[in-house]
Amino acid sequence: MTTFSLLITHSPTNSGEPYAAWRFASSALRLGHDISGIFFYGEGVHNASSLAVLPSDEVNLHRAWKDLHNEYKVPLYTCISAANRRGVLSEHEARDAGLIHHNVDTPFIVSGLGEFFSLLHSSDRMVQF
């Protein structure tokens, strides 16, 4: 059994990487491996936005990550600085910035880069998508 952590640096709309990451994570967990956490950085923070509305016959990755969390309790971290500069905000940050809307909710956790390094230290392999 291997403990993985995942680093997602692409958005669902400009790359197939996040979908590949989700398939990798689902398969690894189903096979009994462990994923200590998934860290969304760079363009990857768009995965955390709950305001993406997709046609019903397309994969909604935001929802897929949530389902993965609900089934396996994998923590989902979003880098705060990468997210904020791209308009991906939790209610708390939106309020601090005087903005009305927010698009990050649980189970996504807005965190610093420290969380990425914690994952790096607590896993056998970090895989970037």
Binding site: G112, L113, G114, F117, S118, L120, H121
Partner: peptide, 8 residues
């Protein structure tokens, strides 16, 4: 820059 703060 963050790496140094986290023993990396």
């Amino acid at each position: 820059l963050a790496a140094g703060n986290f023993d990396t």
